[in-house]
Design a protein around this nucleic acid. Structure first.
Length: 100
DNA sequence: AGGGTGACCCGCT
DNA sequence: CAGCGGGCCACCC
């Protein structure tokens, strides 16, 4: 599965996602800020959407509104996954936002 | 090389 | 308080 060389930005996004402890969730803005681009929340989502690698817990990333946001596989699946991880979901939204 | 899209965010009405 | 529009960044065709 030789994929195209991921850009530095994308790599940073994946790394930041992997840095999220299990049972916790982060936000796109937080990731963007962590990589040095607080205004690149869109680019962050784009990187996950275009890649959505199984090695990257992209489902642990939610919107700043604590909402699940979107998911290439289905936002419902994302919420279910987070629930299994130990994250409390309320009405399709995260009860507590845990930022590392 | 340029245009369009997207898993977003913030501000205004 | 809620809803709508514009803006910002990166990737794909």
């Amino acid at each position: 599965m030789t994929r195209r060389t991921p850009s530095d930005f994308q790599q940073a996004v994946y790394l930041a996602c992997a840095k999220i402890p299990k049972g916790k969730v982060s936000t796109y803005s937080a990731i963007a800020k962590a990589i040095g681009k607080p205004r690149a929340a869109r680019a962050v989502g784009n990187a996950l959407n275009k890649n959505r690698s199984p090695s990257v817990p992209c489902h642990r990333v939610v919107r700043s509104d604590l909402s699940i946001g979107g998911f290439a596989r289905g936002s419902e699946a994302k919420a279910a996954m987070l629930r299994k991880e130990g994250v409390i979901i309320k009405n399709g939204k995260v009860s507590e936002r845990c930022l590392f």
